[in-house]
Design a protein around this nucleic acid. Structure first.
Lengths: 234, 234
DNA sequence: CGCCGAGTTGACCATGTTCAAGGTGGGTGG
DNA sequence: CCACCCACCTTGAACATGGTCAACTCGGCG
């Protein structure tokens, strides 16, 4: 249950798209403000765009933290469709599981660097250290909050509401609160919001027409009328 | 050792609608196989149908376990719509939050009995007891798994797929694997699946026509062709 | 008996999907 | 340096699915 690359053939680092690596981003989840602290040093790894970090169903022996770049967590359905659960950015933790197996596939969106920690080591440390344990709990709770909120977004009536909530989510994590550099493709956005690529495209165009946003290029969005966007989300 | 009664009748109550109380159910979430064990005795409370247990935004000072009956956790949107996140049944825990405030409203679906525990007490106990801590973590992880799966369901293409996954989820928690007593209204089902009451109704009728299910009455569903239903979910 | 809430059914309509062409821009090779 | 290429994105037209609105049925209860 692996081979399922939706977009492009994974391979080494030949010619990488010039993506904003570690710049701006969207939709985080298990973000931990202060780094988890335990002795075991993590292993640093790099992943080229679309390279898989771990697959749904694989044994869950590590957990991860994003250093730079963006990672997506998704589920592939039997009909070939893909549902993106979350995008993780610098500082976000991912890969902690209840089960011994992963329940999601994770892949690099752009050129990404992550640190991995051995699950056993973390769990052992957590058993001895109530503070670490509380941190992990808190991170999991935040992931739960994100997942529930995502359900709400997926359930929104119209495409504009979904897209507005996505853009605001992205903007909330940007330095310049009103200019977003999207590291992901329209397909990624569509799979995150439960829409088709065409609807995402059309809705963006319409938002530009309505002066809600401005698109310098396809990956750079400027929020022109944030309050109107926020009204859509409510 | 805590309450774990699967089918205990919730003691006296004035004049209640004759609902299947403690019979069958659907969609659980933070189920804990072995009861959480700490000294502080819980407080038992009864709730009549539609009575609120706690509200979104309220201070989160207790957490709960269902003894009998069914509880729904939901979010009310500004436009009046309601999104049901989960249904909790006997044994399920709910109300554990990362924040100091609740992020969901919970209400009794039918006549329900719950035990509540003081949050402070639980957290203090968890700090001293790694096993309890691990149990809480595990319960939260399971809730996370449920929430993610729910996202997938909400994102399904057609109404029949959503409903099939709901029915199978219900059936998985029934003694008689193929006969389900629904404790909730069509409106509850609709709000859980992100559909309208009319679509739920129509889809059920169609499934009956197609011999996938049989409806003895509106609340009792018999699965006639489980594998066909499972094919819909995939 | 008639009311009332829950559920069903039908007709129409809106939104997003599907299918099918075009555009666009950055990178490569001639 | 330019032309081509290939992802990625946009746009258009037809269609399908579920939402909306409205009428109707059913069953329990006063």
């Amino acid at each position: 249950m692996t081979a399922h690359m939706a977009v492009s053939p994974p391979s080494s680092h030949p010619a990488l798209p010039p993506m904003p690596s570690g710049g701006t981003w969207p939709a985080g989840s298990t973000d931990e403000p202060e780094a988890i602290s335990f002795r075991a040093p993590g292993t640093v790894q790099h992943f080229a765009p679309d390279r898989q970090i771990f697959a749904d169903g694989e044994a869950s022996e590590h957990f991860y933290r994003v250093v730079s770049g963006v990672v997506r967590a998704c589920k592939y359905l039997s009909d070939g469709r893909r549902q993106i659960e979350a995008f993780y950015v610098a500082g976000d933790m991912f890969g902690l599981e209840a089960d011994t197996r992963h329940s999601l596939t994770t892949e690099a969106v752009n050129d990404a660097t992550v640190v991995s920690y051995r699950r056993n080591a973390v769990e052992a440390a957590a058993r001895k250290d109530a503070a670490l344990s509380a941190q992990l709990m808190s991170a999991t709770m935040r992931a739960l909050g994100h997942a529930r909120n995502h359900s709400l977004v997926l359930n929104r009536r119209c495409a504009a509401e979904k897209l507005a909530s996505f853009l605001i989510e992205c903007a909330a994590r940007t330095f310049d609160e009103d200019t977003i550099l999207l590291p992901m493709t329209r397909q990624d956005i569509a799979d995150y919001l439960g829409l088709t690529i065409e609807t995402v495209s059309r809705t963006m165009t319409q938002m530009e027409r309505d002066r809600l946003i401005a698109l310098s290029n396809t990956r750079q969005v400027h929020l022109r009328n944030r309050s109107a966007l926020e009204d859509l989300v409510t």
